[in-house]
Every structure is written in structure tokens, then in C-alpha cells.
């Protein structure tokens, strides 16, 4: 039987990568599979994708999806810098950065991560006394225009969020909780599978309708929020509990802090601002011709300008 092809004529296999070297049962493998599914279903051109990462377990995973795409495994904690530069060189690229506790926020092989909650117990028994860093809170503070949290075991939520993050114009931060089965899956950890499953509170039911599909889902009025994205895609957020407006940054910050105080792991789209321009736009670099393709004619001063300019130093 022929494989099902996506809108650009590629089979799901075209989005696969090398065999994983993660531990058996690692949440990162689930995330990789969700990424493959999202990229395949969206019909992302492999050559348009650049997979970026730093150092650590999560940073190895870009080798495990979309083998055709260029990938970059850089230095510890500096994936965002490399990504920013590459995006400026060619703003048409879809920059997908994968970074984890072992990279952007911390380091370690069984040591505490900077995201560990106060009171969380290490495998060898030590108790964490330091306040955690919350990537979502940091992103909200720094003005990131797409902030979401999800769980590696929840493909139903994670896949549409990945799609939305890719469709988003500008920086999107997706904080995916991925329990470490080797070093952090014991009682007393606040990032074990069982803890995460028990404490996962979904803000809303997320579905993503790409620009190339008809909106076929119908919700009773008042039960769902629809966010129209810059490329014409739609993000449908079906209410599960209390009223939540993901375009309200103050509400998002409040929610993040509130859930932390309550010991909940809140997942879903925390914040989105589709009106915000991306970095290349604020830099006013050309939309169609990437900077990397410009040549002498466009980049050098003309002879006349050069001569005039030199004369000004006289």
C-alpha cells in the first residue's frame, strides 16, 4: 500500500531522522515523534527547516527527525544566539530550536536542574533548596509573543501546539515537560512521570487548523476561543474550566505564578500575540531576498559614493 502523502507530496518517512540514542522510555523520543507528526501534517518543506540545539540530551534530538534538513549542534546553552544569527542570514528559514534542562537552563547528569522545584528530591536523596527557573515566566517577562507549556506524554495537546508554534510569526517558546526516566523518575521528584500525570492541569483543549484546511469544528458559542494566526491558520482553544484569555499577558503571568503556588502543572497556550512582528521585520531586512544572497552590487558603496565618502576624511 502506498504511503499517505502530505500536501507537498512527502510521506511521513521523509520527516524521520537517525535512530535515537536516548534511554528507553525517554520523553524526548515522544517529543521527537510529535515533532515528526506535526511537521509532516503541516507539510513543512524539509529544506526550509533548520534544526538548532546546544549540548545535552534534548540537544541531540534534532538528529532524530527530518534527516534532510540542516542541523546545528552548537555549544552549551547558546542555541538561541546561533539561531538568531542564522535567521538573520536567511529569514525564510523555519528555525526550530530544541534545548533542555541540560542546555539552556542548566546542566547535569542526575544533578539538580535549574528548573527543579524547591523541595524536590534528587535520586540520591538530596533536597533542592534553590528557587526554580520557569522558562515560561522568563519568556513572558522578556516579551516573547508565543508561550505554551505541554507534556511529552500528551500528543493530543502537544502536536497542535507545535504546529501553532511553527505557524507563529516570531519567537515561540514551548516548554515541554519530559520526565527523565533514568535520573528523575523517583518518588519525591516533582518531574517524575507519575507526578506530572497527576498534576497536569490543561487550561483548554487545543486544536490547530492549518491555513490549507477548512475549519470544520463547531463549538457552541462561548465555549471556545479562536485565534487567527498570521499565516491564516487557526488555533481553537476549547474551554475546560475557567475563562482564560491567552492574549492577556498579565493574566498569563498571574496564571503561571498562581499554578506554581498551587503545585499544579498547568499546560496549554499561555500567551499569544499575533500582531507582534518578527525580528527580521523589526530589523527591516528584505522579505524576499535573504541577506546571505546579496552580492557586491548591492552591498558595496558605488564608486561615486566611495570617492565622496573618502573625500569627507580630508
Amino acid at each position: 500500500m502506498a504511503a499517505t502523502l502530505n500536501r507537498i507530496g512527502l510521506a511521513r518517512d521523509a520527516y524521520k531522522g537517525a535512530a535515537t540514542t536516548m534511554c528507553a522510555g525517554c520523553g524526548h523520543n515522544s517529543i521527537t515523534n510529535h515533532l515528526i507528526k506535526a511537521l509532516y501534517e503541516l507539510g513543512v518543506e524539509p529544506q526550509r527547516l533548520a534544526k538548532m540545539s546546544g549540548i545535552g540530551c534534548s540537544s541531540k534530538t534534532p538528529a532524530y527527525f527530518v534527516e534532510q534538513a540542516h542541523g546545528f549542534n552548537g555549544v552549551h546553552g547558546r542555541m538561541p544566539a546561533l539561531t538568531t544569527g542564522a535567521q538573520l542570514a536567511d529569514r525564510r528559514l523555519i528555525m526550530l530550536g530544541v534545548s533542555g534542562d541540560g542546555d539552556t537552563v542548566s546542566i547535569g547528569l542526575g544533578q539538580f536542574s535549574a528548573t527543579a522545584d524547591v523541595g524536590s528530591v534528587q535520586k540520591k536523596g538530596a533536597v533542592n533548596t534553590f528557587q526554580p527557573i520557569d522558562p515560561c515566566a522568563v519568556a513572558l517577562t522578556l516579551g516573547c509573543s508565543f508561550v505554551a507549556r505541554s507534556f511529552s506524554g500528551d500528543g493530543k495537546q502537544l502536536v497542535p501546539l507545535i504546529k501553532a508554534a511553527i505557524a507563529h510569526r516570531g519567537m515561540a517558546l514551548l516548554d515541554v515537560i519530559s520526565p527523565c526516566v533514568t535520573f528523575n523518575d523517583h518518588d519525591g521528584s516533582t518531574k517524575s512521570y507519575s507526578w506530572v500525570k497527576e498534576h497536569d492541569e490543561e487550561i483548554h483543549d487545543v486544536s490547530f487548523i492549518p491555513f490549507f484546511e477548512e475549519i470544520a469544528v463547531d463549538y457552541a458559542p462561548g465555549t471556545a476561543v479562536s485565534v487567527e494566526m498570521h499565516d491564516g491558520s487557526h488555533l481553537l482553544l476549547k474551554k475546560l474550566g475557567e475563562e482564560y484569555d491567552p492574549t492577556d499577558r498579565m493574566q498569563a503571568m498571574h496564571l503561571v505564578e498562581d499554578s506554581r503556588a498551587k503545585g499544579q502543572l498547568l499546560t496549554g497556550l499561555l500567551y499569544i500575540d499575533e500582531s507582534s512582528p518578527d525580528f527580521a521585520t523589526t530589523e527591516h531586512i528584505p522579505a524576499e531576498r535573504p541577506l546571505r544572497d546579496l552580492g557586491e552590487q548591492e552591498l558595496r558603496l558605488s564608486r561615486a559614493d566611495f570617492d565622496t565618502f573618502m573625500d569627507e576624511f580630508a
Partner: peptide, 18 residues
């Protein structure tokens, strides 16, 4: 400075003169 060189390297990798 770390990020500065990181950005320049990212751009150089993607083909810009950085």
C-alpha cells in the same frame, strides 16, 4: 560577547558575511 559571537557564527553558517 558570547551571544554576539554566537549570532555571528549562526549567520556565517547560514551563508551571511558575519
Amino acid at each position: 560577547e558570547l551571544a554576539a559571537l554566537g549570532m555571528a557564527i549562526g549567520a556565517g553558517w547560514a551563508g551571511a558575511r558575519a
